[in-house]
Computed example of a mutant assay.
Amino acid sequence: MARFSPLDWPVLRQVRSGDLLGRGPAVTSAHTRAMTPRTATADRVVQSVCPFCAVGCGQKVYVSGERVVQIEGDPDSPISRGRLCPKGASSEQLVNNPLRQTKIRYRAPHATEWQDLDRDTAIDMIADRFVEARRNAWQDCDSKGRILRRTMGIASLGGATLDNEENYVIKKLFTAAGAIQIENQARI
């Protein structure tokens, strides 16, 4: 390890280099000068939209190989002009979290263990239960004979991690199925 010299003090470096306000290279350490940004390792940059709410802020996603290394605000976005809220700025952690579930997990009623399902089996199970709940709770008319054509057996609560298009399609699907209890987390 090199011996420390008083000539390496930041104040003396500022005076010697003429950087009296301390805004230039005189005040940076050797460690800071050796650092490289995460974006320098990226192979490509992909434009995307933040997944957290309905605002639709633009993002630049820096990808190295098949791994996302950084997500920043897109300055070309007319919506966010390069800025992201704290949730949007943390979306890289959402993608790279080691605890993120990448398989479909199912726990049967009264079971104590989870089991992995393939996508087609899970979709069939959801569709069967959706249709059964709609059929069992369907209300065609009320007690006075007024037409209702609705189901009280299905409700939807959308999440803030869905984008505008997903929320729009979910709203259309549930409305077409006769559900009237449709809400979104972003509105609550």
Rank of each mutant, 00 (worst) to 15 (best):
114 W>K: 07
104 I>E: 02
12 L>S: 04
141 C>F: 11
59 Q>F: 03
53 C>R: 06
91 S>Y: 14
6 P>I: 09
78 P>V: 13
131 V>G: 01
1 M>D: 14
141 C>H: 14
79 I>W: 05
63 V>C: 11
55 V>D: 00
59 Q>E: 05
178 G>Q: 07
179 A>W: 02
183 E>M: 10
81 R>V: 07
6 P>M: 06
177 A>D: 02
115 Q>D: 08
46 V>D: 03
137 A>N: 02
15 V>D: 03
160 A>L: 10
150 R>Q: 13
180 I>V: 14
36 T>D: 04
52 F>T: 09
99 L>F: 13
91 S>L: 15
68 V>M: 07
181 Q>S: 15
87 K>T: 00
169 V>M: 06
143 S>M: 07
150 R>K: 12
25 P>Y: 08
57 C>K: 07
64 S>H: 02
125 M>F: 09
188 I>Q: 09
154 I>M: 04
30 A>Y: 03
161 T>F: 09
187 R>K: 14
26 A>E: 02
70 Q>F: 11
107 R>V: 10
1 M>A: 10
28 T>G: 08
184 N>P: 00
131 V>D: 06
86 P>Y: 07
98 P>C: 13
14 Q>E: 04
47 Q>V: 14
119 R>K: 01
180 I>W: 00
125 M>N: 12
116 D>P: 00
47 Q>C: 08
114 W>L: 12
70 Q>N: 09
148 L>S: 02
60 K>Y: 11
16 R>F: 00
188 I>K: 08
8 D>W: 08
19 D>I: 02
131 V>S: 01
106 Y>C: 02
173 L>D: 00
71 I>Y: 03
47 Q>W: 04
131 V>P: 03
88 G>E: 01
66 E>L: 06
77 S>K: 03
89 A>M: 07
15 V>C: 02
12 L>K: 04
98 P>Q: 06
5 S>Q: 14
60 K>N: 14
4 F>G: 08
92 E>H: 12
72 E>T: 15
51 P>L: 14
57 C>Y: 03
172 K>T: 13
109 P>W: 05
91 S>T: 15
82 G>K: 09
74 D>E: 02
134 R>H: 10
79 I>S: 03
63 V>A: 06
12 L>A: 07
77 S>D: 09
161 T>K: 10
57 C>P: 05
26 A>R: 05
68 V>A: 06
110 H>D: 03
50 C>T: 05
170 I>K: 05
